[in-house]
């Protein structure tokens, strides 16, 4: 059975450096992707990845082990991303600019899109969704993350999360279907 997140945090606080690296390995993909799709920017997501884990390491002695490490971690990521997005909005108010991160793809007519193209279509569709829908969908995509836990990260009621995710999935499905020109 895998060692719990809280146990790894406890071991780290007691001086076990390796325990923290295990936490990093466990969550680096989630943190990176959550930040990447929240910001629509893979490069800034790398900065968030580093900032987040350094912050967790430094605040480890104050962490309260209540079995909600992942929620706590993702809230840190989200707050950092929201701060960046807020700063972006302030900058954009001064200088309007467009920076598409996931350019539109062309699909050859007469064939179904391949997996890589489908991923690109989903990335593109995600980048066009409202911020809240985007972040909820990335968390939804992570294995074993419950609606309850996603609601905890986003700080909204569970029914709101369900609605956001249902609408987001439907929007992505339509985006994929639109890329399949031979579909009925």
């Amino acid at each position: 059975m895998a060692v719990s997140d809280d146990e790894l945090m406890r071991r780290y606080v007691e001086g076990d450096e390796a325990a923290f690296h295990m936490l990093f390995d466990r969550y680096r993909a989630l943190v990176y992707n959550f930040a990447r799709y929240m910001l629509n920017d893979p490069f800034r997501a790398e900065d968030i990845l580093q900032d987040t884990f350094l912050s967790v390491a430094r605040s480890a002695p104050r962490y309260r082990p209540e079995g909600r490490f992942r929620t706590w971690l993702l809230r840190i990521v989200r707050n950092r991303c929201l701060n960046l997005l807020e700063a972006d909005r302030a900058r954009r108010a001064a200088t309007i600019r467009e920076r598409p991160e996931f350019p539109a793809i062309e699909t050859s007519p007469g064939r179904r899109i391949e997996a890589a193209e489908r991923m690109a279509a989903v990335r593109e569709a995600l980048s066009r969704l409202p911020e809240r829908q985007r972040e909820a969908l990335v968390l939804y995509g992570f294995d074993s993350m419950s609606y309850d836990e996603i609601a905890g990260v986003l700080d909204v009621p569970i029914n709101t999360v369900k609605t956001i995710i249902h609408r987001g999935r439907a929007a992505l499905a339509r985006a994929i279907q639109d890329k399949e020109p031979d579909a009925p």
Binding site: N33, Y37, Q50, F142, A175, I176
Partner: peptide, 28 residues
């Protein structure tokens, strides 16, 4: 398409950060 979208979402969430980024974070 909904099934494929869900599959793609699961794959997106598992995408690893670039190796250089992971190494840089480990160093820090």
């Amino acid at each position: 398409a909904l099934g494929r979208a869900d599959g793609a979402l699961r794959a997106l969430a598992r995408e690893e950060p670039p190796a250089e980024a992971t190494q840089a974070v480990r160093g820090a």
